[in-house]
Design a protein around this nucleic acid. Structure first.
Length: 339
DNA sequence: AATACGGGGCT
DNA sequence: AGCCCAGTATT
């Protein structure tokens, strides 16, 4: 391996030892269960958000066996609010697969075959837990490489990803024993120094190797891909409350789809549909809720109706009493609406 | 190759 | 009002 390439990992390793993050709950962990759980939660999700969920999950499911044995609904309820709910479904399926295998596979390629574990997560687990010499390619690494190489294209295309993986692998440290610290160092560098805005190049251990820095163009990288046009959805949300005990009428969301597996108030595409469903009862208007998802903006119009009949109001769904509510995973805006 | 999939934190 | 986040699965 050329000296210029080993210099990157050598500098990063020394920097991580001195200046990296050592206080994260999953940091320095070699237990694949704990590392895997953290990696899944951290997919497209910030560290600060994950902390509380991670602690709650470990308290409730101390081992992969506990997680595998739990009902999916309980996993979803614990995941509620974290987003990307396919992760919770895959988490549960993966736990059961791991138990069936007698433990976590030790190779990245085998890990990648498990549900919810893609290339980057598989390699993160393998490098952290089993010292495999494989590189991750997450948002941090894409940004670091884009600047280090003054990468002249957006980093998100399939073509760019393939080439960046090759670069990332070429930069790995020679010694497998350094892999856990190296992988952590890459993440820490992106989080602490090579940040999306206001990068601290003066504190960067690899600034001397950085092409963007040499050209004085750090702020230009990574190049932005044109962003797809956002969609827009408008729906009416029926807050149906039973007068006798304050129970709510909830429906489990279909999978696949937004909020798959979670429990929601019934949604209607038109206010007329909602009113047709509740007959001539009084409908109370509540302020609209604007909820932004990745690919569309969602306008929700809550409508409250008190139900005094003994008959169920709709064909689909069930009454959920205030006492039972914590056992039903509900999306963030609904939790907020209900106070 | 493009699209679906959450929610919060930050500027 | 954007941009970003320890991405993956599906089509």
């Amino acid at each position: 391996m050329p000296a210029a390439l080993t210099e990157f990992s050598a500098r990063l390793l020394a920097w991580q030892r001195q200046h990296g993050r050592h206080d994260l709950p999953w940091c320095g962990m070699r237990d694949p269960y704990r590392v895997w759980l953290s990696e899944i939660m951290l997919q497209q999700t910030q560290v600060a958000t994950v902390r509380t969920y991670y602690a709650r999950f470990l308290a409730r499911f101390p081992s992969v066996d506990d997680l595998a044995a739990a009902p999916l609904d309980e996993v979803l309820a614990l995941w509620a609010g974290l987003g990307y709910y396919t992760r919770a479904r895959n988490l549960h399926a993966c736990a059961q697969a791991v138990v069936a295998l007698g433990g976590f596979p030790r190779a990245a390629d085998a890990l990648e075959a498990l549900p919810g574990i893609g290339r980057s997560t598989a390699r993160a687990i393998a490098s952290f837990c089993f010292e495999e010499r494989v590189s991750i390619l997450d948002g941090n690494v894409r940004r670091v490489l884009a600047r280090l190489l003054a990468w002249p294209h957006p980093t998100t295309s399939a073509r760019a990803q393939k080439e960046l993986w090759a670069h990332a692998d070429a930069l790995l440290p020679p010694a497998a024993a350094d892999m856990p610290r190296y992988t952590q160092g890459l993440m820490d560098l992106g989080a602490l120094v090579c940040t999306p805005r206001g990068p601290r190049c003066g504190e960067c251990p690899v600034a001397a190797l950085c092409a963007a820095q040499a050209q004085g163009r750090v702020a230009e990288f990574p190049l932005r891909a044109p962003k797809p046009q956002r969609g827009r959805r408008e729906q009416w949300w029926l807050w149906l409350e039973r007068e006798s005990d304050g129970a709510l009428w909830l429906q489990q969301r279909p999978s696949p789809g937004v909020w798959a597996g979670l429990w929601s108030l019934p949604l209607f595409d038109a206010e007329a549909d909602l009113r047709a469903a509740v007959g001539l009862r009084t409908v109370e208007l509540l302020p609209r809720i604007d909820h932004a998802l990745t690919h569309f903006d969602w306008v929700l119009h809550p409508r409250q109706v008190r139900w005094s009949d003994s008959a169920p109001p709709l064909e689909v769904g069930q009454w959920v009493s205030p006492t039972d509510r914590p056992r039903y995973g509900m999306p963030a805006p609904l939790k907020k609406l209900l106070g």
